[in-house]
Design a protein around this nucleic acid. Structure first.
Lengths: 127, 127
DNA sequence: ATTCTTGCAAAGAGTTTGCATAATA
DNA sequence: TATTATGCAAACTCTTTGCAAGAAT
């Protein structure tokens, strides 16, 4: 990838936050630093960064895609109450691709997983 | 839910096929039986059937949603080569929601999981 | 000099919604 | 009769794309 300031700032933005933002949230944030950046550029760069494995895209049921800096094996929880995405630190799924590959005749490259439920805060609200 | 022939035929269509169709594929199939049904009605009914737990929606990375009749615990493989969705018979994920719930302070209601890779047929093509 | 990237705006795909009408309970 | 569902079309959201201009190698 040829260098571009737009891509650098976009990647920094994804890296620096932990709220699993949508493309539009990233666009709005990056606007502060590059006031004339376009939404198309944000989408193009996010997709490129995903393709190059620098960030990942998280699919949310009935909601727009989120982006996350690629770190260790971790899972995600989508809280249907506050609509936020939270990290789940758990290694129960470690090596699952290899397990499935052994059990079937498929080639497994990756998987997408999202849990749906309630976060801590929304759990407490219900008491 | 109040009875409607449209919904009945839509549910039968999802029940009867194993190719994890998109809303549009279901619409085209149902058109054969109800020639004046509208795409909006298909979407409305699919969503209702999902909400009532009769069918499930499968999220596919960078592709449209698929629908599947709700059966036992099984997983899905999205073949990036032929773009089809296949069933994976495996119980490695059985009880995973409860495990995560024990490990965290979240309430887990459900999860979405899709493996990405190659199906048997596309695997063979590569040899 | 060549290739990649940008901003802009328009288009695209997929899905939802408002409304008057029709069917169900 | 009251409620829910329908067909139609328009609207809506999210995302992609064509293009001429600009930046990076």
């Amino acid at each position: 990838m040829k260098y571009s300031r737009q891509r650098e700032v976009i990647l920094e933005e994804v890296k620096s936050r932990y709220d699993h933002p949508t493309a539009d949230m990233i666009y709005k944030a990056v606007l502060e630093k590059i006031p004339n950046i376009s939404l198309g550029t944000v989408y193009r760069n996010l997709n490129q960064l995903v393709e190059h494995g620098l960030i990942r895209k998280i699919l949310i049921p009935d909601d727009s895609d989120r982006f996350d800096y690629c770190l260790s094996n971790h899972q995600h929880l989508y809280c249907t109450d506050c609509k936020n995405v939270f990290d789940i630190e758990s290694d129960v799924l470690k090596g699952i691709d290899a397990v499935i590959e052994k059990e079937t005749n498929y080639t497994i490259l990756s998987h997408e997983m999202v849990f749906t439920g309630f976060c801590e805060r929304c759990n407490r609200k219900k008491d």
